[in-house]
């Protein structure tokens, strides 16, 4: 067992964990933040995407202990109190989700795309940058629309994720 401390959604957390604990397990099992999901074993599906020090990563392929001292934002930390993040709002407005299972990872990836590429995103860029997220329900059509709209909304004064969550 090893000691671990990090910041999750703006709060310091400490725990003693088995070294094999993955970040996603730590979030789901230790912190009961079950919005981050596991959809595959081979780092393809992206249901587990969280932000680690501001960058989207697959929490199923990251050891919790590797995140010692780091700041992690999960889907639960994206909304600012009762106000939804513009990307969350855009997913609802554009029907960018059906069963909801891939959605947290999709939204965290979408915010990361905006952080990297800015607020004006064309369809091709969005489709290519969603390469690490698989959705089985939507055919991506409305996800693409939601990401474009969410990106634009984020540019209109809505705070980007890092400031909102940390």
């Amino acid at each position: 067992m090893a000691n671990l401390s990090m910041t999750v959604n703006g709060k310091s957390v400490t725990a003693t964990v088995d070294p094999r604990t993955l970040l996603v397990q730590f979030l789901r099992e230790n912190l009961r933040l079950t919005g981050t999901h596991v959809g595959c074993d081979t780092s393809q599906c992206g249901a587990c995407v969280v932000h680690l020090d501001g960058k989207a990563v697959k929490a199923c392929t990251t050891l919790a202990l590797s995140c010692e001292g780091a700041s992690v934002t999960t889907i639960e930390g994206l909304a600012n109190g009762g106000t939804l993040h513009p990307m969350q709002e855009a997913f609802r407005e554009h029907h960018g989700l059906q069963c909801g299972f891939c959605t947290p990872g999709m939204i965290m990836s979408a915010v990361d795309i905006v952080n990297r590429r800015g607020n004006s995103l064309d369809e091709k860029t969005i489709r290519e940058d969603l390469d690490g997220n698989i959705c089985r329900c939507t055919g991506y059509h409305n996800i693409v629309k939601a990401v474009a709209a969410g990106a634009e909304a984020m540019g209109k004064g809505a705070a980007p994720v890092r400031q909102a969550a940390e």
């Binding site: 029907h95 989700l97 947290p104």
Partner: peptide, 19 residues
């Protein structure tokens, strides 16, 4: 109509069996 169920899914509050 925008979906009533979406709020819990987009905020990570869905409750699936593994949760």
């Amino acid at each position: 109509v925008r979906r009533k169920e979406d709020h819990r899914f987009i905020t990570g509050q869905g409750r699936y069996t593994d949760d």
